[in-house]
Amino acid sequence: MIRKRNTNTSANGLRAVNDRNPRRPGRWATLSVSALLLLVHGTANTDETAAEKPSDILVVVNKSSPISRIEPEELKSIFLKKKEIWSDGTRAVPINAPEGSKIREAFRRSIIGFDRDREETYWQDQMIKHGLRRPPEFSRPLKAVFKLRGAVSYVYRSEYRQNVAKVILVLR
């Protein structure tokens, strides 16, 4: 039996993938389809892959994180450091793709809602008001997410690897 995951479509059209119980019946069937696609495309994807474009951006967290889904607004709060702690008490570590990369620009536009200058101004202001540092940048965010408990970042679907990170939101 293949069960479709719960999805939640937000006001701005982004869809959050909800996988609250990864060990429920049907998980292996889901994985088997994924594995088939993996063999064909060389990537591991979720059960919704067939309908998704390769340019999808996946928001990922460390595998150990209890977070299974996130709303775009909450993600924005974390990347703007308005929210600094996950619900389990772990410090949230937002990790950006390098400035100037297409994925960074796409994420900024769809989640943060700022242009590059406005984001820079925001961090300059936060630095002066509260001494806050901006999120770090990594050329390979997936690795950082794998290494750091509490880390959250975003990658293209083609770069995503299962068992390395957990998808909590899909941006189309």
């Binding site: 292996w28 997936l142 390395v164």
Partner: peptide
């Protein structure tokens, strides 16, 4: 397929780590 996938994931994990 599951076994193949696990092997593949293990390999990827190994590479990444």
């Amino acid at each position: 397929l599951q076994e193949q996938q696990h092997r593949h994931e293990e390999e990827q994990l190994e590479q990444l780590t």
